[in-house]
């Protein structure tokens, strides 16, 4: 079958219709990826609800710093907003706001990571002593498992954002063609979506164990 019969031409950049069709398929693939990731995060959530149970069968949680939990949560929510702005900007060929939106998102994402790694984990005890260690029984294991897996996704999201920013600076993406930006944005919002459920599960639901 000739290339013409397949609707292609040698060295031809795909048409607008081809691009739209490919983007629709890409979107579906991205959501299937999210569905597969959901099993991982649901497993972690299930372990939290199965293991964090008091002597009387009531739900308990570790006595973590509520303020740091709330602050990192707000920071991540704000980063979703700036990512959304960046995506809207490139969809309207507003490159300046697109690049700024990405920079703000990467900074807020890094602030979230620092909040978790420095304040919650206490990875640098000379700066802040953490609240839990991974070896602190069932609380430590589950908190580090949940926040660790989530932080890994935040880190990979920041790498994607920096990559998109770099390409955007070099003139890639336009209002008509910006699947790379859209994919990065919905990945980032997915990371935020996971934290929407992880935050209450780790910090809020149940009574603080050992607290008065």
């Amino acid at each position: 079958m000739s290339a013409a019969a397949l609707g292609h031409k040698a060295g031809h950049v795909d048409s607008h219709d081809d691009y739209v069709a490919r983007t629709r398929r890409n979107r579906l693939g991205m959501w299937l990826f999210f569905a597969s990731e959901a099993f991982l995060f649901l497993g972690l959530l299930a372990s939290r609800f199965y293991l964090w149970v008091g002597e009387g069968g009531e739900m308990v949680r570790p006595d973590l710093d509520q303020i740091s939990g709330l602050v990192v949560t707000v920071v991540l929510l704000l980063s979703s907003y700036s990512m959304n702005r960046a995506e809207i900007a490139i969809a309207h060929n507003d490159r300046k706001n697109f690049l700024w939106g990405l920079v703000v998102t990467a900074i807020l994402g890094t602030a979230f990571l620092v909040g978790v790694v420095v304040w919650e984990w206490g990875m640098f005890p000379s700066i802040v002593k953490g609240h839990l260690k991974p070896t602190d029984g069932v609380f430590g294991a589950v908190v580090f498992g949940m926040t660790g897996m989530h932080a890994l996704h935040v880190l990979s999201g920041i790498v994607l954002i920096v990559n998109v920013w770099w390409l955007g600076r070099k003139g890639h993406f336009s209002g008509e063609r910006h699947w790379g930006v859209e994919a990065t944005a919905i990945y980032w919002h997915y990371v935020d979506l996971i934290w929407i459920f992880f935050y209450p599960a780790i910090y809020l639901i149940g009574h603080a164990y050992g607290a008065h």
């Binding site: 979107r27 959501w31 979703s80 959304n84």
Partner: peptide
């Protein structure tokens, strides 16, 4: 709100 407005699930 996140899935509907930020992740544009309707575009699927």
């Amino acid at each position: 709100f996140v899935v509907n407005y930020f992740m544009h699930i309707k575009s699927l």
